[in-house]
Write a protein that binds this DNA or RNA. Structure first.
Length: 514
RNA sequence: GGGCGCGUAGCUCAACGGCAGAGCAGUGGCCUUUUAAGCCAUUGGUUGAAGGUUCGAAUCCUUCCGCGCUCACCA
C-alpha cells in the first residue's frame, strides 16, 4: 500500500492535512474560483496601470506554489499556472494574523492554492497580487523533485533540479511539473501533429482510422505483438503499419487518405526506437513517388514553419535547412560513391557479400541481397545525410509492396527521406498489380524461414481488394516521433514521448528467481 | 542479447579500503517589500539488492535489478 510508505518529509506534510481540517479548512476543496491566469492578470494590471486613478484590478488566481519566502509578518509566494508565474504578496494587514500563521504552518512548495486580492507592484517593481484571502486547493504530500531556481532576464535558471533520466521518465508528471522546457517539447509535439493534419486536410486527404487489432499483420518487416480475443478464440496482432488497410480504402474510391496513429513493433529499444510509436501514412491515387517526394519536402518545410516559424533547425549541433528542394541521391550511385560497390553488378546475396568483404566490409554471405544492401545504406549513407536528402530507387527484394521501375525488373520506385543522419520517412509508387503482388508475397515467404516473425503472412484479403482494381498511387509513411526529435533538437526518442517504454521496475527488491 | 559506464539523504552531488558528508528542501526560532531572501539552531542514510574478500567495504570481487551510452537487431 503506497500510502503507508510515506517518508519523513511526506509524513510531516500529511500531518498538515490534519492541521487544516482541525482549523475547519478542507485541504481538497471541490471547486476553484479562478478568474484569471497569471498572464491575464498581469496584462490586465499593466493596462490599467497606465490610467491615472483607475480602480485596482481584483483577481482570483490559482496555481502551484513554486517558491516561498516567509518573512515574519509578510510572505512572498510564487505560484505557477499554465502560462507562467506570478508573485503573491501576503501581508498580515490584509489576510489577518490567523491566516498568516496558517500560511506558514501549512502551505508547502508544490501545493495548489488559490488567492484573491488586488494587483499591485512591489517596491522592486514586480507585478504581484496583494492577497486579501487565500485557500488551499490541493495539499501536496510528496515534495517536488525541484531545486531552487531564479529568473534572470526572463530566463529560468534552475539550480539542482530533477535530472535523473530514469526518474524523469518513470515519473513524467514530476518531470513536467518541474521542468518547463519539457512542457515545451510536448507543446511542439502537439503543434507538429496539428500542422501535419492541416497540411493533409488542405491537400484534400481524408483522415481515416483503421484497425489496430489485426488478424494478419503486414506492411513492414517487423515482429508484431500478439494478443488474444477470448470470446472469439482468435489470436490478433497489434498493427506494425497501416499500409494494407489504407490501400484497401483507395480501392474503395477514397482517392486520398491518411492516418495518424500508433504502430507497435516487438523489437529492440534504442534512442530512436520505441515499441509503440506514432506514424503518419498517406496514400494518393494517380500520383507517383516523384510527386510524393515533392509533397514530402513541402509538408516538412511547411510544418517546420508553422511550428517553429523557420525552416532552419539545429540538430545535434548541426545547422539543417529544410527549404525545398531537397537533395536527391540515387541509391546505386550513392553506394558506388560511398563504398565503390556497384550493386547492379552483384545480382545475388553471396556475390554482393563477397564484394563487400573485398572492400573490408563485414558481410554474412547467408544474408539475402536486399538485407545486405539495406545494411550498406544504413552504415555508409544514412549517417552522412545530415541535410534533408531523398535516397531513391531501391532493389525489389526489400520492397515487396512497391512498383517496379519500367524497364528494370530488379528495382522499384521507392525513396526514403533522411534528415540529421536519421531515416524519417519511406515512400513508393504502390504496387497495384495483384498477380505481381501475389508473386512478391510468395518470394518473401521463401526468403524467410517459416518461423521467422518477419516473414509477413500472405494477406489474401488484400490481394482480393487489389483484384477489384487499385488505381496507381503513391504512398508515404513517416515516424512522427522522429520529426518531433528534429523540431525539438532532442537526440533521444524518449524525450519526445510522454511515457516512453521502460523496463518494469523490480518492485519487491528481491532478486529474480528465473 | 554483447561491451562500457552509472546507482550514496526528498533533489543535486562529495567521500574511492579507515567515524557517510555538503548545498538545497524539511523542522524550530528571528524577521512588514523579498525574489536562488537572510541570520541562528537542527532532523534526515539498510550507500539499488544479495553474497564474498578483509581486522575493517559506499569503495575490491561475484551474481541479480534498474538506468544511460554503444554494438547487434530494426524494408
Amino acid at each position: 500500500m503506497v500510502l503507508m510508505d510515506f517518508n519523513e518529509l511526506e509524513q510531516i506534510r500529511a500531518e498538515k492535512i490534519d492541521v487544516l481540517r482541525s482549523a475547519g479548512i478542507e485541504p481538497y476543496p471541490t471547486r476553484a474560483k479562478r478568474t484569471h491566469t497569471t498572464q491575464q492578470a498581469k496584462q490586465a494590471f499593466e493596462q490599467q496601470e497606465t490610467i491615472e486613478g483607475a480602480d485596482p484590478i481584483r483577481v482570483t488566481l490559482a496555481g502551484r506554489v513554486r517558491a516561498m519566502r516567509p518573512m515574519g509578518k509578510i510572505c512572498f509566494i510564487h505560484i505557477e499556472d499554465i502560462d507562467g508565474r506570478l508573485q503573491l504578496f501576503f501581508r498580515v494587514n490584509e489576510v489577518g494574523a490567523e491566516a498568516m500563521k496558517l500560511l506558514t504552518a501549512t502551505v508547502d512548495l508544490g501545493d495548489f492554492i488559490e488567492a484573491s486580492g488586488e494587483m499591485v507592484r512591489t517596491r522592486t517593481g514586480e507585478v504581484s497580487l496583494l492577497v486579501h484571502a487565500y485557500t488551499m486547493l490541493a495539499k501536496a504530500i510528496t515534495p517536488l523533485p525541484a531545486g531552487k531556481d531564479e529568473i534572470v532576464d526572463g530566463e529560468l535558471i534552475q539550480h539542482g533540479g530533477l535530472s535523473d533520466p530514469e526518474l524523469r521518465y518513470r515519473q513524467r508528471y514530476a518531470d513536467l511539473a518541474v521542468n518547463p522546457e519539457v512542457r515545451e517539447i510536448f507543446r511542439i509535439r502537439a503543434k507538429t501533429i496539428r500542422a501535419l493534419r492541416c497540411f493533409m486536410d488542405d491537400h484534400q486527404f481524408l483522415e481515416v482510422e483503421t484497425p489496430i487489432l489485426q488478424p494478419i499483420y503486414g506492411g513492414a518487416a517487423a515482429r508484431p505483438f500478439v494478443t488474444h480475443h477470448n470470446q472469439l478464440h482468435q489470436d490478433l496482432y497489434l498493427r506494425i503499419s497501416f499500409e494494407l488497410y489504407l490501400k484497401r480504402l483507395v480501392v474503395g474510391g477514397l482517392e486520398r487518405v491518411y492516418e495518424i496513429g500508433r504502430d507497435f513493433r516487438n523489437e529492440g529499444v534504442s534512442f530512436k526506437h520505441n515499441p509503440e510509436f506514432t506514424q503518419l501514412e498517406f496514400y494518393w491515387a494517380y500520383a507517383d513517388y516523384l510527386q510524393v517526394m515533392e509533397l514530402t519536402e513541402k509538408m516538412i518545410s511547411q510544418v517546420a514553419m508553422a511550428v517553429l516559424g523557420t525552416m532552419q533547425i539545429t540538430f545535434d549541433g548541426k545547422e539543417i535547412d529544410l527549404t525545398p528542394p531537397w537533395k536527391r541521391v540515387n541509391l546505386r550511385d550513392g553506394l558506388i560513391e560511398a563504398t565503390g560497390i556497384d550493386i547492379q553488378q552483384y545480382p545475388d546475396g553471396p556475390s554482393l557479400a563477397a564484394a563487400m568483404q573485398e572492400k573490408g566490409i563485414a558481410a554474412n554471405p547467408q544474408m539475402p541481397r536486399g538485407k545486405l544492401i539495406d545494411k550498406l545504406l544504413g552504415d555508409h549513407l544514412e549517417p552522412t545525410f545530415i541535410q534533408p536528402t531523398f535516397l531513391y530507387d531501391y532493389p525489389i527484394d526489400i520492397s515487396p509492396l512497391a512498383k517496379k521501375i519500367p524497364g528494370d525488373p530488379t528495382m522499384v520506385e521507392r525513396f526514403e527521406g533522411f534528415i540529421g543522419g536519421m531515416e524519417l520517412c519511406n515512400a513508393f509508387t504502390e504496387l497495384n498489380d495483384p498477380i505481381d503482388q501475389e508473386q512478391r508475397f510468395l518470394e518473401m515467404g521463401r526468403a524467410y524461414a517459416e518461423d521467422d516473425d518477419e516473414n509477413n503472412p500472405m494477406d489474401e484479403d488484400y490481394l482480393k481488394a487489389m483484384c477489384y482494381g487499385m488505381p496507381p498511387q503513391g504512398g508515404f509513411g513517416m515516424g512522427i516521433d522522429r520529426l518531433v526529435m528534429l523540431l525539438t533538437g532532442k537526440r533521444s526518442i524518449r524525450e519526445v514521448l510522454l511515457f516512453p517504454h521502460l523496463r518494469e521496475r523490480d518492485r519487491t527488491g528481491e532478486s529474480s528467481d528465473s
